[in-house]
Design a protein around this nucleic acid. Sequence first.
DNA 1: TTGAAAGCGCTAACAG
DNA 2: CTGTTAGCGCTTTCAA
Lengths: 338, 338
Amino acid sequence: MQTIKDVAARAGVSDRTVSRVVNGEPNISKKTRVRVEEAIAELNYIPNLAARMVRTNRSGVLGVITDVVSTTPNSVDLIRGIQDRISTSGQSILIANTSGTLEEENKVWRTFREHRIDGVLYATMYHRGIDFDPEAHAIPTVLVNCFAEGRDDVPAVLPDDYGGEEGATAYLIAAGHSRIGYITLNPAIIAARLRRQAFEDVMRRHDLAVHATWVTSGYEGPEGGESICAYEVVREILSAPLGERPTALLSGDDEIAMQSIFAAMSLGLKVPDDIAIVGFDDFQMISTRTVPRLTTVALPYYEIGLRAADKLLAMLAGEADDEVVERLPCPLVRRESA
Amino acid sequence: MQTIKDVAARAGVSDRTVSRVVNGEPNISKKTRVRVEEAIAELNYIPNLAARMVRTNRSGVLGVITDVVSTTPNSVDLIRGIQDRISTSGQSILIANTSGTLEEENKVWRTFREHRIDGVLYATMYHRGIDFDPEAHAIPTVLVNCFAEGRDDVPAVLPDDYGGEEGATAYLIAAGHSRIGYITLNPAIIAARLRRQAFEDVMRRHDLAVHATWVTSGYEGPEGGESICAYEVVREILSAPLGERPTALLSGDDEIAMQSIFAAMSLGLKVPDDIAIVGFDDFQMISTRTVPRLTTVALPYYEIGLRAADKLLAMLAGEADDEVVERLPCPLVRRESA
DNA sequence: TTGAAAGCGCTAACAG
DNA sequence: CTGTTAGCGCTTTCAA
């Protein structure tokens, strides 16, 4: 592999001059610059970042920590958003996965420090609170899709689950529905509580009754080990005669919405005519594949990734950010199920 | 940040001795080792990998190149498999995404060379052939989920789509089905051709007729921009009276299988009693959420990632691998739809 | 505008 | 078993 000295020799200048050209420093005569650039091209010289870093003590690498990536497919959009922003800034990203265990996570932080990572994006694969102490790691960090429990001084970018469900509920009401049910996620999940709360608040604001029997969980079992039961639950609700069942159902996620369609069909009910169904998440593999396709609230993962990377870059540049914790809107995507 | 010299001073030894301890080299007296380890702990010393690398000329970092990650959710398992193997080997991984454009890809290779990456895992998000010349980059590379078109000397790890569909077809036949239809993926996709070919070969081997009208594409439009039409297509096929329609349907993927269930239900047909349905991919977000759940062929993404990382590690260690191109089995996952 | 000398933190090579 | 010397490829510092 060619070094800066090889280039210097070839161009007939000192290595310091080559360094200047490579780093785009000013005060180089055009003639010299061109000669050096030619030499670089001829030798196919590629700078050794590690050597540079030993001197500058900045790595130009950002770290991304993820927990159990595998469970939610759209988490990939988070990464993509991060990558798209980082790569245009000329940095690279080192990705590490903790599998959710503390031991793994500590190993990851250590690796990051060994690499003298400039900053960290800590992403969880579903919206949740974490136990996080920024002092413990001494690396600028932005939380992505999660927040530091019990403190509001840790930068974070989150989806606005509450606002998303507000919009969905208002949409159904505007469409003339007043008898609306809600199939929740596992209530242990924070998104479940936010979404459900938004539904109830909007209903109340419109003086609409929330029927206790129409609000129930679509999952059973403990957090992490839950199994879906939306199909059975929805069949139960929809088995009531016309005047005694809801005309619309909000779902904690798209999977519940999908099972709701199955349940409705199994009872001979038409979606959306007999029962309107709204999902949440907009996992397109589901939402665009059901028949009818899902009207659902989109989780803006890509934008969250972008914004989080922006925030980290701003921190590293020493720019103060006005909002420490940002919530990004979850827009309603209208399709045919409601 | 503390350096090796700080530790040496603290422990009252030379920096070289500290280096020996840090790297676990032999020939150190227990007493010295303990003293150094104490100093390391007290100073919270973390080795500077970049400095080490300048000396050793090995980065300990592997690069992962992905194309359009976002489209298939299970691609994440690929990454997870890679990570799980790499991290236990003490290396780190640098991930870069090309967004599918050649320009981006060239930038990525350059970044990798700047980092003096030891080896590369080149992963595509669906099984396909790529134009790849290993000489062009001069970094040991293993292809993941793809293969170098027109050459068999480039290491690669792939799913055995053909074998998977053979298994699924044989399973249906063993269950007593003889009238089997097949809804294909976009035929431009290599997996589509392999899977369909396996189906036809097994049928022929069993002297079973393949009805032309029962074999059709579940997607329309060009590769990359296709839209699903499985619902309509399957309704058409299943509209025929009992004796003139298939009793089982193989699907190019789980999304087609899901739409097939919707189609069957819409005609008042029961799955699997009236029509058995088999998917492909085992995207669990779909396959475990439909009612009934999908019997489907699993794409072993996690194992592919693991194996590919193994292969790369072996290459870097100078061990020859017997098989250059490996195909991993796609097992049938039995659930309730067939 | 350019170059020489020094040194970043670490390890290779060798000596003791 | 341990230390010394040199040097990896680059940038900083300072002088020309």
